[in-house]
């Protein structure tokens, strides 16, 4: 009897092991494929010319594959969007976790999370049709399809991620800490500022980094509203061409296993390295500054 039970237990164990292995294996295969399809480019041009080349003319004769303006575009768009989305997301999270009444919280939290379920193409369309003409008329600039517009739209998309993860982190700060702070005579604001925020800092950092990694990998929005000019932007109102937009726009028409095709995969590798770094940092922060109970503070 106990033998069959053990066997069953072992089978279940193996089953879940197998399932977990499948997803890891798939990820590994995708990564391998990305490498295999990207590396052949470097037989034609050096890695240095690829990363730091200033001109992206993949179809002219001779072609030029310099992704530096694309990398700068991705970084700039993500940075500007972070400037908008971090205060918005974190402050909303503080409000929801600490200040809002239960009733408000029950309505407001799902609404913020609903933002995450807006399809990116809808956000892109909104940016293209409503925000772009508005920016152009308000700031009297040449075009509304630019870095700033794309950053605002991306901020829309990362706010729910940042808010929801930060809120969980703030909410899980041990009650004793807050009670102790209040008992010592601190006001509600002082408690939030000096106790709750430092205690949930690792969770908030993770939230911010995950939100940014979502922004840098987002494709549809930047394809539609960033303008698509492969140049290093001189101001935040210049059009840019982030890496995902370039890959999405050109992949369909790049000749299979041609240099252009390899170059797009190589761009994919660069993008992958970026998001991987973001996730590693998030993981590291989450582990290093992990709050275990009230005692570690």
């Amino acid at each position: 009897m106990s033998n069959t039970r053990q066997l069953k237990e072992r089978l279940i164990h193996k089953f879940f092991y197998g399932i977990a292995f499948v997803s890891i294996f798939t990820l590994f295969l995708i990564f391998l494929f990305l490498l295999l399809e990207g590396i052949p480019l470097f037989e034609k041009i050096s890695i240095n010319d690829f990363i730091f080349g200033n001109y992206w003319y993949p179809t002219s004769d001779p072609p030029e594959f310099g992704v530096f303006p694309l990398i700068i575009a991705s970084v700039a768009v993500t940075a500007v969007s972070a400037v908008v989305s971090i205060p918005l997301g974190v402050m909303t999270a503080i409000y929801l976790a600490e200040i809002a009444s239960n009733k408000v919280r029950e309505i407001a939290k799902p609404v913020v999370e609903l933002l995450a379920s807006l399809p990116s193409v809808v956000i892109g369309f909104f940016g293209m049709v409503i925000v772009a003409p508005f920016l152009q008329d308000t700031f009297n600039i040449a075009t509304g399809l630019n870095l700033f517009n794309a950053a605002i739209m991306l901020a829309f998309m990362s706010v729910p991620t940042i808010c929801s993860i930060s809120e969980d982190a703030i909410y899980s700060v041990p009650k004793e800490l807050k009670e102790a702070s209040l008992a010592l005579g601190a006001t509600h604001f002082e408690t939030i500022h000096k106790v709750v925020l430092p205690a949930s800092l690792s969770g908030i950092s993770t939230a911010v980094i995950l939100g940014m990694s979502r922004a840098i990998g987002e494709t549809m929005v930047v394809l539609m509203v960033a303008g698509g000019a492969a140049m290093i932007p001189g101001s935040i109102f210049d059009p840019v061409r982030p890496m995902p937009a370039s890959i999405a726009a050109e992949m369909a028409e790049a000749p299979f296993r041609g240099d252009h095709y390899y170059a797009l995969f190589a761009t994919g590798i660069v993008l992958f390295v970026f998001t991987l770094c973001f996730n590693l940092i998030a993981d590291h922060v989450a582990h290093k500054y992990k709050q275990v109970g009230a005692a570690t503070l």
């Binding site: 001109y55 992206w56 303006p69 293209m128 049709v129 772009a132 003409p133 152009q136 075009t143 509304g144 399809l145 394809l223 539609m224 303008g227 698509g228 000019a229 492969a230 140049m231 210049d238 059009p239 061409r241 999405a248 726009a249």
Partner: peptide, 18 residues
């Protein structure tokens, strides 16, 4: 390099109209 690139005829028409 400063030219805006759009992915389709429709997108160009839309961008010019706006």
């Amino acid at each position: 390099p400063g030219a805006l690139l759009q992915a389709s005829n429709g997108a160009v028409a839309q961008a010019v109209a706006k």
